[in-house]
Design a binder for these strands. Sequence first.
DNA 1: GGTATATTTAGAGAGTTGTCTAAATACCTA
DNA 2: TAGGTATTTAGACAACTCTCTAAATATACC
Lengths: 94, 94
Amino acid sequence: MANEKVFKALADPTRRKILRLLSSGELTAGQLTSHFDISAPSMSHHFNILKNADLVFVRREGQQLYYSLNTTVFQDLMTVLLDIFSQPENGEKK
Amino acid sequence: MANEKVFKALADPTRRKILRLLSSGELTAGQLTSHFDISAPSMSHHFNILKNADLVFVRREGQQLYYSLNTTVFQDLMTVLLDIFSQPENGEKK
DNA sequence: GGTATATTTAGAGAGTTGTCTAAATACCTA
DNA sequence: TAGGTATTTAGACAACTCTCTAAATATACC
């Protein structure tokens, strides 16, 4: 569900950039971290928030953790936004 | 533009509910406030954040301030979200 | 002007968030 | 088992956010 956690997760620019990076395909925690001037623990904190919002998947391969986008939550998010921003048609009850 | 301020504004459930209420048409500050168990000054604070994010319009009529939805920002928001969540097609560069 | 209503501004306080360093855990290779 | 790399967990701290009460501003009406 596109709930509280999803909106909170999207409220931070670092996390939105992480998602944009992942839109091209999965990346390891280290690869993602190299795109930022932020410590690894701070990045890990962001990964956690994204994971808890179900915006990303993780899988381990050896020492590395691969993060990838969970696009199904995006569908729900769009539904919520459409509900918020849709204007009622003439005569339509909302 | 669907920027930082828009995402921050959407991160709060009270503000999302305000937007949902406005999706049926404009309402005064007082009418909006009556839907919440929150003081008028706190509501005013939320109105301000929504205004600064260009998510709502305001107009005064006598003693009342009427708030209404600015749906144009919604377009931009959708564009940003599509950019974040779109997966590249086969062979497509992203 | 004086009073009432609608709403905002000012300022304070508790809770949340993003960042850091230090330490721990997980896995690999020898 | 030991050492190295990848990543997370723990704990602390400054900054930001949401809420409140009190006071100010804006408008209407008598």
